[in-house]
Design a protein around this nucleic acid. Structure first.
Lengths: 349, 349
DNA sequence: ATGGTAAATGTTTGCGCTATCATTGTACCC
DNA sequence: GGGTACAATGATAGCGCAAACATTTACCAT
């Protein structure tokens, strides 16, 4: 089979190949793909047939280069394993995909240095916009993002001075509200279990601490943290450790996320500690498990999917030059009181 | 500020800009970035300074176009919300990232038609390789993938005739093994709860069914399935429903995944059904929760992270023209017997 | 008829980069 | 001292596409 190399089978087909088969100019093929309304029905059909025949797939690199439009949104998250980001990503993908945008996703492993590298990688793809997590970027990373001159959304938390746009909620207030709610149910001695201790967890702890201090009930000896990543296993270990160091004198424990809280809950069952009568337990993020476990777990619910959707919509509006309604959106949260904590009416110990 | 448009501040810097500042040719700058060993130390430093000064970030579209290398691996998964894929993705990202590849990820929502569209999108980015899920592609999708003439890995399940490479395990054998293990512990009447019912779940059910039929213990009335996506809530509902239709005569239930199994477990606690003495329960995928919940949940453990790593490594080897050790890798699985099932020695009911 | 307008299609050019080949400089050998 | 070998750098061309501008045709109002 001579000529195999220069024919349809081997080389990837180009616009020019399609144009030749359809007996039109290359730009007409381009128009059929990008602006079909600008081509007559007859030609449109002829070109489409040639495209199908050759199995033509446009070369997006060439298109991006020529048109300065990549149709890519860069997204940076700190962890692929933390399922908190799944829902957020789903929101972003749903909105971006429905509007013809691809998502290029990177994982920074909670490291600003790595984030800087990853953002550079993303920017080299000429994304039309970026969605990044939190406000803890390096100076160099901020400079790159500003210089890129594209819409940027920082998500997950509310920032004092975002680079551009911002959607999230106040982890500080959420942590404070948890403490207040626990106090309301008659709990006096409150403990805290925290892992990873990224900025958002630190803010939760700060709010929690502040609420306790202002009612004179803060005891640093009841706070236990670790830089290790959260897991159910770790929650169990830290629970056991906190119970032993405090001599079992705690009324309630706030775990910085539901992984830890579920680990604590399961461990408490093994230790024969009654939840909530012996000890109340509160998590954060409100996983589906938390609502169904027995006793069900009090947690802070966050509209993560909606946050992803909002981030993507803010980006799209900015790209469409729509006047942004707000550059900063507080997506809120809700403390969901369940069986793992006591009720105000029944603060029995 | 005249001239602002043509200077560093506004327009994105190009190779030529860097070259001019460093007083070298453009190709030298390119070499500093891509083949630094081919440039003398002095020039390399001068160029690097110019790059830093201008905040130059290469345009990957132009690079891809000129070099026919995109450094992109396309990955297609059926669901972003199903956390089973998190671990797999983590494996892929870790290996791909460490080797300078970007991952372009799409979600097909378990639809072959959507998968076809998404694969077309991925191919338009000229990926150097593709990792896709399962073997349930449309004919057109298969044709596109073959025509692209790049390494392709189909993952998650073992296929009879993969398009190219394949890593996964036999869901059929896993389902069969679960049935056999449950029979070994003295369970006679086995039920099945399945949701989503994608091909892999169907294979688990087929294996499960086959094992029961060959020992004359299969009862289709004990099988309950739905095309809805799995969730803990759904697991609870289906459990309640299966218990009521079978009149509570079951010895054990195999849930097609751990979401459903945990939902069933939590619901059984509320219904005051004793696990495993009244009823044994087995899940699939072995989430972390399953090992720590009380009673701990028997489940089928799958090395998902390793599967992702293996998929990426197979791709890299193929791209390096290393002789692939095997085109098909069985990553295996393991039925982990825990407290939610009985033991062979103690088959008490 | 004449000019004017708009729709349909084509020609040219350049996006930013790298492969390829060409050139220059430098060390080294017999 | 003339040749060989190789390292370092540069000039040129072209990757595939779409923006910008040009041309053709059809149709209408005057």
């Amino acid at each position: 089979m001579t000529g195999r190399n220069r024919n349809t089978s081997s080389r990837r087909a180009t616009l020019a190949d399609v144009a030749q088969v359809a007996n039109v100019s290359a730009i007409t093929v381009s128009r059929v793909i990008n602006h079909p309304d600008k081509v007559s029905g007859e030609l449109r059909q002829r070109v489409q047939e040639a495209i199908d025949m050759l199995g033509y797939i446009p070369n997006q690199s060439a298109s991006s280069l020529a048109s300065a439009r990549s149709r890519v949104i860069g997204v940076s998250i700190p962890s692929l394993s933390n399922i908190v980001f799944n829902d957020v990503l789903r929101g972003i993908y749903d909105v971006a995909g429905a509007n013809g945008y691809k998502v290029l996703l990177v994982d920074t492993h909670y490291s600003p240095m790595e984030e800087e590298k990853m953002v550079r990688t993303l920017l080299s793809q000429s994304p039309e916009a970026m969605i990044i997590t939190g406000g803890d970027q390096t100076r160099a990373c901020e400079r790159m993002l500003l210089k890129a001159n594209i819409p940027v959304v920082q998500m997950m938390e509310i920032l004092d001075s975002p680079l551009d746009m911002n959607v999230g909620f106040s982890h500080y207030r959420a942590g404070r509200d948890v403490a207040l709610k626990l106090l309301e149910t008659g709990c006096e001695r409150l403990g805290f279990i925290g892992a990873r201790m990224d900025t958002r967890v630190q803010q939760r702890l700060a709010g929690f601490t502040e609420a306790l201090q202002s009612s004179g009930k803060f005891d640093p000896g009841c706070v236990i943290t670790t830089p290790e990543p959260s897991s159910i296993a770790l929650g169990g270990e830290m629970f056991r450790s906190l119970i032993s160091t405090t001599g079992g004198a705690l009324d309630a424990i706030f775990c910085c996320n539901d992984d830890l809280a579920l680990g604590a809950l399961f461990e408490s069952q093994r230790m024969n500690i009654k939840i909530p009568s012996d000890l109340a337990l509160c998590g954060f993020n409100d996983f589906e498990t938390s609502a169904y476990v027995n006793p069900s777990l009090t947690s802070v619910h966050v509209p993560r999917y909606e946050m992803g959707v909002t981030a993507a919509r803010m980006i799209l509006d900015a790209l469409d030059n729509k006047p942004a309604l707000e550059k900063k959106v507080d997506i809120g949260y809700e403390v969901r009181m369940r069986q793992s904590t006591r009720t105000a009416q029944d603060p029995a110990k």
